[in-house]
C-alpha cells in the first residue's frame, strides 16, 4: 500500500475538482494512499520561470524540501506542477552553486534540500506501482473499443531528459479500459494554453489545429492529464463554435474519470457534469 505526498497545485482544486475526485476514487480502488502535502501552494507555472527564475527555484525547492522530510514520492495530477517540480529538481541536482543559494534561503525556515526526493505524475505512479495487469483485473465495465485521442501535454513529455515520462504509459492506461488509442499526426503538438496571456488568437489556432487533427483521424473522445490542457481543449470548442461555426463535439475527459467509469463507478462520482463539452456520451460505450 504505497503512500504518496500529494501535491495539488492551484489549478486542479479550483478548476477541476472532478479530476481530483476521480483521482481519489482510482487511488482508493488500488490502495494508493494520497496524503495532501501540508503548507504548500502554487508552483508559479512557466510564467514565473520566465520572469523570476530564482523565485521559481525557491518556491518549488521549498515544496521538494517539505516532501523530503517524510521521504514519500511526490505525485501530482497537473503537468504544469509536474514540469516545474521536475525541472527545479533536475536543475538543482546539476547546479551545486544554485543548490547552495537555495539552501541558504530554505534554512531560514528550518528546511533543507538534498535532492533525493522523487517527483511523479499521478498516472505514472498508477502505471508503475500498480501496473496494467492489476488495473485490468478490476475493470468491470470496459469501454467498447471507442476511439480516444490522447493529448499528453508538453510538460509531461518534454524535455524528456528532465521529465523521464514515456508516452506509452498513457497509451497502455487508456487501452486497459477497453478503449482504442487513436493515432493522429499532431499528437505531440501543444494545446496552446501557455500562450493565452500574450496572444489569444494564436492559442485558439493551436487548439483548433489539434482538435481538427484528432477529429479527422476518428477520435470520439479526448483524454488529458493536465488541467490547463483540459481547459484549453474543452473550453475552446465552445469558442470555435461561436467564432468559426465549427462543431467538434469532442468530449474532453481527465484520464482518471475514464478509468473510474470503467471500474464501475457512477458518473456523479467523477463529476462528469462539470466537463463543458457534454461528456456523458461516454456512458453509452460502457459495456456490462
Amino acid at each position: 500500500m504505497p503512500i504518496y505526498n500529494l501535491y495539488m497545485g492551484c489549478s486542479v482544486p479550483a478548476n477541476y475538482p472532478n479530476y481530483e475526485a476521480a483521482m481519489f476514487k482510482v487511488a482508493e480502488t488500488f490502495d494508493m494512499t494520497l496524503e495532501y502535502m501540508e503548507d504548500v501552494g502554487c508552483c508559479g507555472s512557466p510564467n514565473l520561470r520566465a520572469i523570476d527564475f530564482f523565485g521559481w527555484l525557491l518556491v518549488n525547492a521549498r515544496t521538494l524540501a517539505i516532501a523530503e522530510k517524510n521521504g514519500h514520492d511526490i505525485v501530482t495530477p497537473c503537468n504544469g506542477c509536474f514540469g516545474s517540480l521536475k525541472d527545479v529538481l533536475h536543475h538543482l541536482q546539476h547546479d551545486e552553486e544554485d543548490l547552495k543559494r537555495v539552501n541558504a534561503e530554505l534554512k531560514k525556515s528550518g528546511l533543507s534540500l538534498k535532492c533525493t526526493i522523487k517527483v511523479r505524475h499521478f498516472v505514472e505512479a498508477l502505471y508503475t506501482d500498480i501496473g496494467i495487469e492489476q488495473i485490468m483485473s478490476r475493470i468491470t465495465r470496459p469501454l467498447d473499443g471507442v476511439g480516444i485521442a490522447i493529448h499528453y501535454g508538453c510538460h509531461v513529455l518534454r524535455p524528456a531528459d528532465v521529465t523521464e515520462f514515456k508516452p506509452e504509459i498513457l497509451d497502455e492506461l487508456v487501452r486497459a479500459t477497453g478503449a482504442t488509442v487513436i493515432d493522429y499526426p499532431l499528437w505531440k503538438q501543444c494545446c496552446g494554453a501557455t500562450v493565452l496571456p500574450v496572444n489569444e488568437a494564436l492559442a485558439i489556432r493551436l487548439a483548433r489545429d489539434k482538435l481538427k487533427s484528432m477529429k479527422e483521424h476518428g477520435a470520439e473522445f479526448v483524454t488529458v492529464v493536465c488541467p490547463a490542457c483540459g481547459n484549453q481543449l474543452d473550453l475552446q470548442q465552445l469558442g470555435l463554435k461561436d467564432s468559426f461555426g465549427e462543431e467538434y463535439n469532442l468530449p474532453v475527459l481527465l484520464y482518471p474519470q475514464i478509468l473510474a467509469l470503467a471500474l464501475g463507478m457512477d458518473e456523479s462520482e467523477v463529476g462528469l457534469e462539470l466537463n463543458r463539452v457534454p461528456a456523458d456520451p461516454i456512458l453509452d460505450h460502457l459495456s456490462g
Partner: peptide, 17 residues
Amino acid sequence: PGLATEPLKEILKTTRT
C-alpha cells in the same frame, strides 16, 4: 487541505517578481 499561500508571497517579495 494543506494549502498555504503565504510562503509563496513571502518568497516572491524578496525576488525579482
